[in-house]
Design a protein around this nucleic acid. Structure first.
Lengths: 147, 147
DNA sequence: CTACAAGCTCAACTTAACTTGAGGTCAAGC
DNA sequence: GCTTGACCTCAAGTTAAGTTGAGCTTGTAG
């Protein structure tokens, strides 16, 4: 059987589970690329499926399209990305993932105590403090133990 | 200084690190409540600080304001929430957190293999499959024929 | 008793990530 | 050759979670 040739936008949508409009959108944002037929219709290479998969996975982890675009931009323009290319990408995100996991763990482990503790000094709460804008701009009185 | 009984919106903003506009917004969304002075200015009880803290924490974990509102709605209207009340809430969110952590772990552990594996059958990918609409509607024919 | 910081309301604007719609083209089956 | 469904472009709409600004009122320090 002949290798599957190019995919239409509809086929990519069907296979990736992403709406056609979203694919258009990704393309406009430079996350995926296509070339056009004589009749101006999009045709995608098979690697677009992988790209889209990566995009969705990354999104699920909370990476914004802009960040994803930046990461994907590092992939070779001309050729099909190698295992090496993808691997590099995944390694970078893996670190971010690790951070995120640790953050959530910390949160989870502190959650019950911190929410349920009944303490009145919320501004001393270790959970709260981690992104406390006040800590940065603090005028003094509100200033707490630096982490 | 005498113990502060009621807080103005500005004081809440200062102590919670949340913008006044955001507090207005939360109030409009029913996440927090206030009563008004004769001059129509908001006055908050001290428990609002806790509420706001909980809101921000929950948001950070990826819970939407709508969901937070629903959870907070379960808190007693009339009285200051007890430790019990908060604890119940945190326990519920804790479960969600656990799920999220596990999901991320799975993602992390599969990421390098799955993104970097070089395999061509993306629709068989364990990562992708977890939310694959196609897998549910799949006719079987769409099963990847291609390399 | 007055200046002016803080509050108030309401509407409009913002960003992300898409979706929907209008109006028109292309391609494949009968 | 027609009909139908998939495509195309571009503009506008949508949701979340707020922010910003205008115009007006309150509250408090000096």
């Amino acid at each position: 059987m002949a290798p599957v040739r190019e995919l239409t936008v509809g086929q990519v949508a069907a296979r990736s589970g992403v709406a056609v409009s979203a694919l258009h959108f990704y393309e406009a944002r430079g996350l995926i690329h296509s070339h056009r037929t004589a009749g101006n219709q999009r045709r995608y290479g098979r690697d677009v499926l992988r790209r889209v998969a990566v995009i969705r996975i990354a999104q699920e982890v909370g990476i914004s399209l802009a960040e994803i675009a930046a990461a994907l931009a590092a992939l070779p323009e001309g050729r099909t990305p190698t295992r090496e290319d993808w691997s590099q990408l995944s390694t970078a995100w893996r670190d971010g993932l690790d951070d995120k996991i640790n953050q959530l763990k910390k949160l989870r482990d502190g959650l019950t105590d911190c929410i349920g503790c009944g303490c009145m000094s919320i501004d001393k709460c270790p959970l709260r403090n981690k992104d406390d804008r006040l800590a940065r701009e603090g005028t003094g009185a509100r200033r707490l133990v630096a982490r």
